[in-house]
Design a protein around this nucleic acid. Structure first.
Length: 292
DNA sequence: AGCAACAAATATC
DNA sequence: GATATTTGTTGCT
């Protein structure tokens, strides 16, 4: 099966795969100490073990067991007491194979002038559309310069993706145009199309400081992680880690600007705007792509 | 005033 | 002793 065909299956319109995966992750992370078996997870979900195995591997490219190890990395890292070690190095210590040599999603970015940001998006026309993704229903926003926003709709979060995004640039004009955003959805979530010869154009709209943080984030390779203080050092303000945290959290283009790769210094997955479970899911998924 | 932080100190098991 | 919780400091919005 081609990657494209596989991806098409991954992103069932009703998002049922992600829903299953999300619940598994929640169960796993609730008591990772007990290392729940596949049989038990399946029983709790009311599915047959083989069915669960199939859905899970299709989605993550990893068996649930391997995935369990991946999302337990924060725990592993804490146990190892390693400092500033990239995520996968830590996983290597717990008997996990190393990262693949996959290229990361190749993007070119340009920063919107601070003026546009200060004007709260005035004069900007933003087209948007909803598309299924491996992480649930995604809301994509574009300007004529490129991708400007990526959010996730998640009823369990009790927040509306569109409201959330629109409040960032309240004065922009919003036009629904799913046909225009569809190609972006296809590109962003298909690792087979992450190639340098056809870079994805993204537009960063934010304050000066935020944009520097987001640019630093985009330099973190797939399935790797770094800490907030690492980022602070990287942008030349080693004491500004707290401000970095705030800026990371404000990132409008989640997943593409990999805010999910920022961890607390101890390896804790501190917070995530679109839900901690989704952050774990992304990290695990990336590890899976690295294996593929 | 408010944060998706950090480190050191103190309290708790 | 190892972990939880608290407290002071931090830089940018």
């Amino acid at each position: 099966m081609t990657v494209a065909a596989r991806l098409h299956q991954d992103i069932t319109p009703d998002g049922s795969d992600y829903e299953t995966v999300r619940r598994v992750i929640e169960m796993i992370t609730q008591d990772y100490r007990s290392q729940p078996t596949l049989d038990r997870l399946a029983a709790d979900l009311g599915q047959s073990p083989s069915q669960l195995q199939k859905v899970f591997t299709r989605w993550a490219g990893l068996s649930p067991k391997a995935f369990l190890q991946a999302v337990t990395l924060d725990h592993a890292k804490r146990l190892l007491g390693t400092e500033g070690l990239p995520l996968l190095d830590a996983s290597f210590e717990v008997g996990y194979s190393g990262p693949g040599r996959l290229h990361d999603l190749f993007v070119t970015h340009e920063a919107m002038s601070p003026g546009v940001w200060k004007a709260r998006g005035e004069g900007l026309t933003i087209r948007y559309g909803y598309h299924p993704s491996p992480f649930g229903l995604a809301l994509i926003m574009i300007t004529d310069r490129g991708l400007a926003g990526l959010a996730f709709d998640d009823p369990s979060l009790g927040k509306d993706a569109f409201e959330d995004m629109a409040s960032r640039w309240p004065k922009a004009r919003y036009v629904e145009d799913a046909a225009a955003t569809a190609p972006y959805a296809a590109r962003v979530f298909d690792p087979a199309r992450w190639q340098a010869d056809e870079p994805l154009n993204v537009v960063l709209i934010g304050s000066d400081f935020q944009i520097r943080v987001w640019q630093a984030l985009m330099q973190i390779p797939l399935a790797r992680a770094c800490t907030y203080s690492d980022l602070a050092r990287k942008i030349g303000q080693p004491t500004a880690s707290r401000a970095v945290g705030a800026a990371v959290g404000r990132n409008p283009i989640s997943f593409v600007v990999p805010c999910h790769r920022a961890l607390g210094k101890s390896g804790d997955l501190t917070g995530y705007h679109w839900g901690l479970t989704r952050k774990r899911a992304m990290l695990g998924w990336e590890v899976g792509q690295g294996q593929a």
